[in-house]
């Protein structure tokens, strides 16, 4: 028999993150007049976009019960690769984009291949890829930033459409596509099944390895989107870029309610998680809190979110 209170508490755990996000926004809106201005909100959206893209990717992976630590390195590799083809008066802008995305797809597929064929835990495999990726980025760029990029390439991360920063548009489109993929397609359903109970998924006739190949590959593509966006924004392909990005992305997914043991999670949750991280660092900036303290606050929020989530589940 289920207790009413328990049900209510669980649903609080489920929606707690949305509530927390709302409350924090309201408090900020009243306490810092600069927070709730169009320009500041667009700034937040712009800042959040890269982390959100990576977080969408890693959400797929975590739902299947895996993890991907190579996101940050993929950002660097794909950024450097794209930048190499983005010098002015060389190729049309579509070329660096396609090649950058292709690089992400390749590395993601490599992750998926090793994870499915070797049975080595994804934590270890992607830890290796993280180091390999960083090395590749340094090799391809000969250790130097790749600069002098075309204006049309720089538009991706720096341009506006009807006053809205282009990264926000990319973010919205990616969110919609990822949500549909997760909720409306057979592949999405299989992701939940594989993460929920892999042997049962296999016994139900699901090709578990195919599903895993897909999620790591998709994660690679989304990381490449992040890499291209970052490169375009800072107008340079930086081989050292993206270090630690994987942790922010994983944090966004977890704050948004994705369980690290697999089988649960939503794109909306992850988006809110990424926004929450963005809003908090933005507001701490506005409140002139130094970045040292910001890190402490962020850590407390990550733990708090998971505690809230597990309390909701326990009952």
């Amino acid at each position: 028999m289920e207790n009413n209170l328990q049900v209510r508490f669980r649903s609080f755990g489920q929606y707690g993150i949305y509530l927390a996000f709302l409350i924090i926004c309201l408090v900020l809106a009243f306490s810092t007049p600069r927070f709730f201005t169009v320009s500041n909100l667009l700034t937040i959206g712009n800042q959040v976009s890269i982390n959100a893209l990576l977080a969408f990717g890693v959400t797929f992976v975590i739902i299947t019960g895996g993890i991907d630590l190579s996101l940050g390195s993929m950002v660097a590799v794909t950024g450097v690769v794209a930048a190499t083809f983005a010098h002015p008066d060389t190729y049309p802008v579509i070329v660096p984009i396609v090649i950058g995305l292709g690089a992400g797809l390749g590395i993601g597929a490599f992750n998926g291949f090793v994870v499915t064929k070797s049975k080595v835990p994804p934590f270890i495999v992607t830890l290796g890829t993280m180091t390999i990726g960083r090395g590749l980025a340094l090799i391809l760029s000969k250790g130097r930033p790749v600069s002098n990029l075309s204006d049309s390439f720089n538009f991706i991360g720096g341009g506006n459409v009807l006053g809205i920063p282009f990264p926000i548009i990319i973010l919205i489109v990616a969110f919609i596509v990822c949500s549909i993929l997760l909720n409306k397609t057979i592949l999405g359903r299989y992701m939940y099944a594989v993460g929920g109970n892999e042997p049962a998924a296999r016994a139900s006739g699901i090709r578990v390895n195919n599903v895993k190949m897909w999620v790591y590959t998709i994660c690679g593509i989304l990381s490449a989107m992040g890499g291209i966006l970052l490169t375009s924004r800072i107008t340079t392909g930086q081989p050292n870029a993206g270090a630690g990005f994987e942790l922010d992305a994983i944090a966004a997914a977890i704050i948004g309610g994705t369980s690290t043991s697999g089988g649960t999670g939503t794109m909306t949750g992850t988006l809110i998680g990424a926004l929450l991280i963005g809003v908090i660092s933005n507001s701490l900036d506005l409140l002139n809190v130094t970045s040292y303290y910001q890190q402490v606050v962020m850590g407390v929020i990550i733990i708090g979110a998971v505690v809230l989530d597990s309390m909701g589940k326990k009952s």
Binding site: Y192, A193, N197, A200, A201, A203, I206, G263
Partner: peptide, 15 residues
């Protein structure tokens, strides 16, 4: 080997 615990009756039935 039977069901996916996080899933609903419907999700498991159609899997």
């Amino acid at each position: 080997l039977g069901f996916i615990p996080q899933m609903s009756v419907q999700g498991n039935l159609s899997l």
